[in-house]
Design a protein around this nucleic acid. Structure first.
Lengths: 193, 193
DNA sequence: GTTTTAGGTTGATGCAGGTTAAGAAATCCA
DNA sequence: TGGATTTCTTAACCTGCATCAACCTAAAAC
């Protein structure tokens, strides 16, 4: 069960089997059914979770009740509201499973304990946040420079297979456009082919 | 000289005077004249720098030679290309002083040495990256949800005084709009007032 | 002190993507 | 299986911001 998880953690920093076992003890293994809300806007996010299986979205709901999806997480990705979790402040976001989802999750208290027991993990998690930062900056950047059509093509590459797992209007939301616009983009693309 | 810097570092983690002195030894104090390029696209970013004084922009230049500004940094801010620095990969960005600028900067090798000498700093820098992540996510988020006018008003609050220090067309670039569009926004705002 | 030049404003026009609406297709579930 | 619901598509129209271009001002350069 921990195979992919261990590999994810050890990507940049060596960890002994013993250290890994301490880590495992602080994480909780959980399975949630489809459409479970793991976080609601206004709550403090109390988890960082690694996805073993399934699919999760993190999104915002505006005054009109429309949702904007900020992140999809699938197998071997992490999900949390980093800002809320780290500063232990209320979140603006919702986090929700889109399929039955299996997680390894840790809460704030356990994460701090873990850092005390295995200080090397400060480094591991620093590198994880740095990776997340690089991913986000890239997303921000392409959002400014690339038109919607290019972003859609990028999306297909970055999340292969997710098109089949997630309704199209949610992908449109992630891309920052309306479902109608995405539908038109697909139409012109298939005309071009 | 190190007063504000020390305070910035100690925001979340206590550090002794001795530890701070080790830190100081690994940072370099530098002053650059206006319009100095600290990083060019294609180079590996080899600094993380804390601004004592002055103003810096980080930007991208597209095929048409137009620049898009991703970040302004002023007093008590950090500047770097985190993705390039951390992974030691070529950057897509330029980093340039907009005024005479005084920095405390550290390179990759020294940062790693510093981590070995004062492991507690792993934590300090993890928290710094987390803060940077939260700031970036907020920017990304408002970029999607808010219209240009709101983003302009946000900008004025976030960077008080910068309007006077930076030409307006660069602020437009930061906001993701053209100078003409910003000019019109200002016109309608003063009409509303 | 006149001439460049950089920065800012204003107007006309165009286009990507938003909005609204309605029907078609797919999926869900009793 | 069949009706309900959810998702996708298409079309007509609208809007915010981009583009292009002319013009204005003020400061810098000669």
């Amino acid at each position: 069960m921990f195979q992919a998880f261990d590999k994810n953690l050890k990507l940049h920093v060596g960890l002994s089997q013993q250290e890994l076992e301490i880590v495992h003890q602080h994480f909780q293994h959980k399975t949630y059914p489809k459409k479970t809300l793991l976080l609601k806007a206004g709550q403090v996010c109390n988890f960082e979770a690694y996805l073993l299986k399934g699919c999760i979205k993190r999104y915002y709901i505006d005054q009109n009740g429309d949702e904007t999806i900020l992140q999809f997480a699938v197998e071997d990705w992490w999900v949390s509201d980093i800002a809320s979790f780290c500063q232990q402040l209320p979140s603006r976001f919702y986090v929700e499973t889109m399929e039955e989802t299996e997680l390894l999750q840790i809460n704030y208290q356990n994460k701090e304990l873990l850092f005390k027991e295995v200080p090397k993990l400060e480094r591991v998690f620093r590198l994880l946040v740095q990776r997340a930062y690089a991913v986000l900056e890239n997303r921000f950047f392409t959002g400014i420079t690339d038109p919607a059509e290019d972003r859609y093509l990028e999306f297909i590459k970055k999340y292969p297979g997710l098109l089949q797992r997630v309704p199209q209007y949610q992908i449109a939301s992630y891309l920052g456009i309306t479902p109608e616009a995405l539908s038109r983009i697909k139409a012109t693309l298939s005309r071009k082919k």
